[in-house]
Design a protein around this nucleic acid. Structure first.
Length: 712
RNA sequence: GGGCGAUUAGUUCAAUGGUAGAACGCUGCAUUCACAUUGCAGAGGCACAAGUUCGAUUCUUGUAUCGCCCACCA
């Protein structure tokens, strides 16, 4: 079988990953070792051969999938891969997260579990639509020129062409995911899952349509959830404006055209006697009448203590208006321009209107003061455009009960966060939950399954179903039965509430069972200075370049080497050097052992009778190391596990024992060398899979399989 | 504003209620017999203050600095 042969080139002096990695990956993938249905079972008793592995030594695979199911008693282990965006390319955060998953998956596979790492990609609504729109723009075409149907065709075309980029990159990293099960959050079965989920909520009356003030991105022309809004500091101006007998402050004078009331704190001695009165107020649009309402949320200390109420353009004011039955005047439209209600300002952009209105206020002698003011502005997380809070009709999902079940599942220990601290982020969000705006006014996404609605669902609505939808739900598939609930999920802390929380309540709602037992929140890779890596700031490091230059093993080594107890990694290029050197050490130690044991009758298993105390020492030390490393991986302490292995292999095995054996030349030392080396390669394999597999192929081990499927 | 975490060698990080370790870097020596991507040796460090303790880098409290998350003040 093509690619099923270990590389038979000689072990040249310097280790060069480039010569090997691609070949090795094919050797794993083609026989189906990533696929739990095609894993060989049990030990093969046939061979007594020693010496380097030959392809003949590979025994035929016995299937453990559907065919052997009845008799299979092996336990399963499943991770559903956090599906990267189809628009994505691998960044350091991915590289770390996926390496961690791969370590666990390889470890469990070697421990004899039916192991599935289920991969997929996410359609990433707004992100993907933006990418394709940008492409079209180069040709001078907008999506509106094309129309919805044609535009969607273009997006699919784009997806077919570029959507696998990140998958190819994951393979370079060594990810042992079962690509034969690859899913996409908009593939046929997944559409069915989303529809089923929507219908379920709808029938429960948890999905409703309503008019609310939502976050609106004028550029993307869509609503956004609170979690999709980011804040930026901006130097603005603070205006104080005469409001009849009162003075109110604002940074956005243009929204005052939509004011329908004034709010004061009922405790405020200055104003409380005004509550309930209707004031005659001179505005830039002439005289207006405005009611004064009392609300304890008004901060007496802030500004003048009197607050204008703009129900159509502020979420809090909206609530106030609901409570007090106030009129809602929409003066800014979805295009970011003033509406007809703004009268003479209609058609102006927000910015233009502000300038004009301030000038008019001055003319009318209504502007009391203006001064520089530093504040936070809300911007779109995708395109950085300033968010306009707008009154808009959207679909919402009621969160109260879902939040409760999600909260309970973590409180009662069904689902564990690692590190546990992050559960706090989760509880805080759930405790202050608001209904989820699930509709988006873009074209690329899951259509809301109701007649006559052109909106699509928030991307996260579909991702929320991932752990079971990717296993086949709503169909009752064997995979679903076999692998759900999954064991572990790994991702960055940035999406705890965007994604993890929503998977948890979705799993509990649709499967009556948690989606995973352990949630590993991995470190964030920062720059050496401790700043966020960001493409736009040019502070990012491309893991593919590292793989190209140092090899996947050294890159994985460097990532894990720096993953210690703390949460952030300040990326150090030096750990790559350490990794590269370590690879070389392993390579050469193996060459040495082969020189000592090649063409001989050394047996891996004969060493237990050894009488030589030096041998005992190294063997005992190895056994302890093995036990500790196993425990560390089980408790997700990957960095310490790797440090321990490094220390043992380099300083105990190479520096001490290997040097000693140069003076001796008997069978016991040869066997001991083999015992410790082969054992070490196994322990190292999950971390640095390529080099260990190559070297494994060279060692005289009886009944040898590929290392990836050897027993731990 | 609220929360979480960090502060240890030149740098990035460990460990620890009683001699503080690693990697990379640095200095010296050695070796070409697995590896110069080497070996051996060496220099070099617990943010500050108070408390608990026989004893604190470790526990408690406070201060300072830094980072991250959440909220968002009209």
């Amino acid at each position: 079988m093509l690619g099923n042969t270990p590389p038979n080139d000689e072990l040249n002096k310097p280790y060069n990953p480039k010569n090997h990695e691609e070949k090795i990956y094919k050797m794993w993938e083609e026989p189906g070792y990533f696929n739990p249905d095609r894993l060989p079972v049990g030990a093969d008793q046939r061979g007594n051969e020693r010496g380097p592995a030959s392809p003949k030594l590979q025994r035929p695979l016995r299937l453990v999938g559907d065919e052997a199911r009845g008799e299979s008693t092996r336990k399963t282990f499943c991770i559903t891969m956090a599906p990267p965006n189809v628009t994505g390319s691998l960044h350091m955060g991915h590289a770390l997260g996926y390496t961690l998953s791969d370590i666990l998956v390889r470890f469990k596979r070697m421990r004899g579990f039916e192991t599935l790492w289920l991969p997929g990609t996410d359609h990433a609504g707004i992100a993907t639509q933006n990418v394709v729109e940008k492409e079209l723009k180069k040709q001078g075409v907008s999506r509106h020129d094309l129309g919805r149907e044609k535009f969607l065709e273009k997006v699919w075309e784009w997806k077919e062409k570029y959507g696998h980029t990140i998958i190819d990159q994951l393979k370079k990293l060594g990810a042992s995911a079962d690509w034969s099960r690859l899913r996409f959050t908009m593939d046929e079965g997944y559409v069915k899952a989303v529809e089923t989920a929507f219908k379920h909520y709808y029938d429960k009356s948890w999905i409703y349509q309503g008019e609310r003030v939502i976050n609106w991105c004028p550029r993307c022309a869509t609503s956004l959830s609170d979690l999709e809004v980011e804040y930026k500091e901006e130097n603005a101006e603070w205006f104080e404006i005469k409001y009849g007998p009162l003075v109110i402050g604002t940074v956005r004078p243009e929204t005052k055209l939509g004011d329908t009331a004034i709010a004061v704190n009922p405790q405020d001695p200055r104003y409380k006697n005004l509550i309930g009165q209707e004031l005659e107020i001179e505005t830039v649009l002439g005289p207006a009448k405005m009611k004064v309402v009392g609300d304890p949320k008004v901060d007496m200390e802030f500004g003048t203590g009197a607050m204008k109420v703009t129900p159509a353009h502020d979420a809090h004011d909206f609530e106030l208006a609901e409570k007090n039955n106030l009129e809602k005047k929409q003066v800014i439209g979805p295009d970011g321009r003033m509406t007809a209600l703004a009268q003479k300002y209609a058609g102006l952009t927000v910015k233009e209107a502000r300038k004009q209105i301030v000038a008019d206020l001055e003319k009318k002698n209504l502007l009391v003061s203006r001064k520089p003011y530093l504040h936070n502005i809300a911007v779109c997380y995708r395109c950085d455009t300033i968010i306009e809070p707008l009154l808009s009709k959207q679909w919402f999902l009621k969160m109260k009960e879902l939040a409760q079940t999600a909260s309970d599942a973590v409180k009662n220990g069904q689902i564990k966060f690692h590190p546990h601290n992050f559960a706090k982020t989760y509880f805080d969000w759930l405790d202050n939950i608001r209904d989820w705006t699930i509709s988006r006014q873009i074209w690329w996404g899951h259509k809301i399954p109701l007649d006559g609605v052109s909106d699509v669902l928030d991307t996260w609505f579909s991702s929320a179903l991932w752990p079971f939808a990717a296993l086949g739900w709503p169909k009752k598939t064997k995979d679903l039965e076999r692998f759900y609930p999954t064991n572990v999920l790994t991702n960055d802390r940035g999406i705890i509430n965007l994604w993890d929380t929503r998977m948890i309540f979705s799993g509990l709602e649709f499967m009556n069972e948690k989606p995973f037992s352990n949630l590993i929140i991995h470190a964030t890779v920062m720059t050496r200075e401790g700043k966020r890596m960001s493409k736009s700031l040019g502070t990012g490091i491309d893991p593919l370049q590292l793989i190209e230059e140092y090899g996947a093993d050294a890159t994985r080594f460097a990532l894990i080497w720096q993953t210690m107890g703390g949460q952030d990694i300040k990326w150090q290029q030096e750990s790559l050097v350490a990794g590269k050197k370590f690879m070389n050490k392993i390579w050469n130690a193996t060459r040495f052992v082969l020189q000592r044991t090649g063409n001989s009758k050394f047996e891996v298993r004969s060493l237990k009778q050894t009488q030589i105390s030096e041998n005992k020492d190294v063997i005992n030390k190895f056994d302890v190391t093995k036990k500790t490393v196993t425990d560390l991986i089980e408790s997700y302490e990957f960095g310490p596990a790797l440090h321990l292995l490094y220390d043992f292999f380099w300083h105990d095995f190479c520096d001490k024992y290997l040097e000693q054996t140069k003076k001796l030349n008997d069978e016991e030392t040869g066997s001991t060398l083999l015992y410790v080396l082969t054992g070490s390669l196994k322990l190292l394999h999950p971390f640095i899979p390529f080099i260990t597999e190559i070297l494994w192929g060279k060692l005289p081990v009886p009944n040898k399989k590929f290392l990836i499927i050897e027993s731990w």
